[in-house]
Amino acid sequence: MIIAQQKQIKEIAAMVSDCKKVALIGCAGCVTVCLSGGEKETEIMAAALRIMRKLEGNPVETITFTATRQCDPEYVEALDGVVKDADAIISLACGVGVQYLAERFDKWVVPALDTNFIGGSKVHGVWEEKCGMCGDCVLHKTGGICPIIRCSKSILNGPCGGSQYGKCEISKDVDCAWQLIYDRMKSLGKLDKLMAIQPPKDWTKSRDGGPRRAVREDVMIG
């Protein structure tokens, strides 16, 4: 899922300081799961904003709603009535949701979250990045551990000389992905596969090829 975290309330408040009526739109997708932009977080943020503005002597009215998903036109269109009277919209979705709302509504739309990465939860309250979205998966070559995003240098023929005691040179809190790959391949009896020199990556399938688009003609309607 997409992992996102809330910006500081002061920062968010500053984006709508001149607005009198603000719609806060949560998302029931990934950001609900990672506890940053679901129904509960949307209500809390709205209350915090109202309190802040009241204390400043500049009260604000808030409208709250949590969309099923903000990354789908179907659910975004359903917000027409909700945001109708608002001067501004605060989106508590990932960057995708913010853009879908900005596309749909001729209003000031601002992000409440910083979209961090795609990953999963490790324990309750801790999420880890797992996929670099390079568009050309190499996990079958690396024992199911992604060197593109989990190696600080995205090295395909690692580990570099900064790997020590299982940790990356950048921090003792970061595992060396290539140590993990080595251990995994060893336990699977496939170390010989690491002797193949992996060629340079074709980054056109990643962001370097320009904005990407996926098309499935077989499921298109009309």
Binding site: K153, S154, C160, G161, E169, P200, K201
Partner: peptide
Amino acid sequence: LSGDHQKFGNHPSSKNVYDVDSMQ
């Protein structure tokens, strides 16, 4: 060489490249 991560230097907020690695 791979090169030391930019975190250690005087421009830690820069972007790194690693388009190819040292082996390549």
